[in-house]
Amino acid sequence: MIFEAMVEIRTRPGISDPEGATIESALPRLGFGEVSGVRVGKAIRLSVDAPDEAGARRRLASLCDALLANPVMEDVEITLMAD
């Protein structure tokens, strides 16, 4: 069974995020001064062939640990979109 998935990779609180900081610093000039807390991460869409949802989650978690995220700096959230 093919599971469509989205892996969101977020830098942990306290980890340097110059891209987020630069975007946030531009907001007041653009008239969005009420927007704050900008953090830039990554979203990776992928498909995984697995017998069931639990199996798909296990494989994706293992992939995140091996490659997609660095546990020293990043947290991941895996969302499955089975159809």
């Binding site: 995020d17 110059p18 630069t22 660095n70 700096m73």
Partner: peptide, 15 residues
């Protein structure tokens, strides 16, 4: 990244 040394290198503290 290869875990031959511990820790990680994050983006510079400045921008």
């Amino acid at each position: 990244e290869a875990r031959l040394l511990p820790g990680a290198l994050q983006k510079n503290a400045g921008l």
